[in-house]
Design a protein around this nucleic acid. Sequence first.
DNA 1: CTTGACCTTCCCTTGACTGGAAGCCCCATA
DNA 2: TATGGGGCTTCCAGTCAAGGGAAGGTCAAG
Lengths: 138, 138
Amino acid sequence: MNIGDVSTRSGLPAKTIRYYEDIGLIKPHRSENGYRCFVEADLHKLAFLGRARALGFTIEECRLLMALYEDESRASGDVKQLALEHLRKIETKIADLQAMRETLTELVQCCAGDNRPDCPILKDLAGQTDLPEQGVKA
Amino acid sequence: MNIGDVSTRSGLPAKTIRYYEDIGLIKPHRSENGYRCFVEADLHKLAFLGRARALGFTIEECRLLMALYEDESRASGDVKQLALEHLRKIETKIADLQAMRETLTELVQCCAGDNRPDCPILKDLAGQTDLPEQGVKA
DNA sequence: CTTGACCTTCCCTTGACTGGAAGCCCCATA
DNA sequence: TATGGGGCTTCCAGTCAAGGGAAGGTCAAG
């Protein structure tokens, strides 16, 4: 298999596949003409990586997960711990974004959104808050 | 004011303030010795930027917001539109992260997390899903 | 033989900074 | 007056996970 086929079948861009080789996540063989030559196992690894990345694991976490996957004597507890740590990071991000969403939603609701220049959103950003009985939201 | 004072008062690192000057968000004067010399208006702008960034606006969005802020004849509708677009992006991100969280939570719940190698998390990543009556989650 | 699709490497760009090195500047203390 | 320490300057490199694009080699069809 050439990189184009692998790209199609894995759903990963060729650029990404080359990048994953660069950083040592996969090690495809080479044909005589210098083309990368992938076997099913490579495709399988790439699919694994694609799914792990889609779940938001960083590249380094993916590297660890792959190592665990290939280690027949792994402890599932190690995998679970990695997943739990990642889960906590995701939850933190969600909370941060939700806080932003709340503040923005309030600001948007307070803004007339017409042709007049008076704008509570800008006022808030400028530090002269305009919101009705709103506590400080750091 | 030197950069250190502005950094303290705005809460932004000096590095960030220099960066904001580099990309043209602020234009502090210079003292004879070459030091940046900030006035209250600069501090005010930096605080504005800090708040907008904390709400997740990109630098380019901040640039637009600042321009609107300084434009006395702006229409609040323009600001509101910018905020609404940003709000939608935030909501998309939240939804993506929530999907990750759900999948990860399920996987974590299915994993014994002990010393045995059998691990539903790895199985799922490898494409051989193991979850009880679970539809495909792309 | 030529065209066009595919492949290769290489380097640059992204966003929003952060870190660090090398070198002035300024003030206080010995 | 020396010197020490902190603050300031610029510039360069690195982060993360790729994406863009150039220059050139390879291959199969017409």
